[in-house]
């Protein structure tokens, strides 16, 4: 059943892919026998064939995931999205402290240990990656605003 749903969704995407390949893509002029559209056409046909076989003979019946697990997975994805959204505005250190603490706490560590882990990951991670390895990590708008006002005052 799950197989059929997944294959069905993929089939819709693949059909859209095929429609674009067969109608929209074309080169204004070309010298080669195969243009940019031929390869996607071949691929879409192979993919549709595979999907039809799966729809006809699915082999995975259920996901075997309990409601509680779904909830935990959903929460993780939401945290990841929030982490991505806050990465630049808050900066690496603050965003990582927040993300590390919440995910760690959700996975069953005590609140103090989680907080300790979050702070360690944020601060040590920044020192290691941005200072020592000179990788590019966001400082955060807050930090930049403080630096800006400080510079304005000093000038």
């Amino acid at each position: 059943m799950v197989d059929r749903i997944f294959a069905g969704v993929l089939l819709v995407v693949t059909l859209a892919y095929a429609v674009i390949a067969f109608t929209a893509i074309s080169a204004p002029f070309q010298y080669d026998p195969l243009g940019p559209e031929s390869w996607p056409r071949i691929l879409s046909l192979v993919a549709i064939a595979c999907l039809l076989v799966i729809l006809w003979k699915p082999d995975t019946e259920e996901m075997g995931v309990t409601r509680q697990t779904w909830f935990r997975l959903g929460a993780t994805v939401i945290m990841l999205v929030a982490y991505s959204e806050l990465y630049e505005p808050l900066g690496f250190i603050l965003a990582t402290i927040l993300f590390g603490t919440t995910l760690c706490a959700m996975l069953g560590a005590g609140i103090w240990r989680s907080a300790l882990f979050g702070v360690a990951a944020g601060v040590l991670g920044y020192l290691l990656c941005a200072t020592l390895l000179e990788l590019n990590l966001p400082d955060g708008e807050l930090y930049e605003a403080i630096v800006d006002t400080f510079q304005e005052e000093s000038s």
Binding site: Y83, F99, L107, A121, L135
Partner: peptide
């Protein structure tokens, strides 16, 4: 595991962000 799992996410985010610095890539 509860320390390991967040650490993977943090490492993955650092790695992807440092390529071009585009937060859209994180999503």
């Amino acid at each position: 595991q509860h320390y390991l799992t967040p650490l993977i996410a943090i490492l993955a985010f650092i790695g992807i962000y440092t390529i071009v610095g585009n937060p859209f890539d994180l999503l």
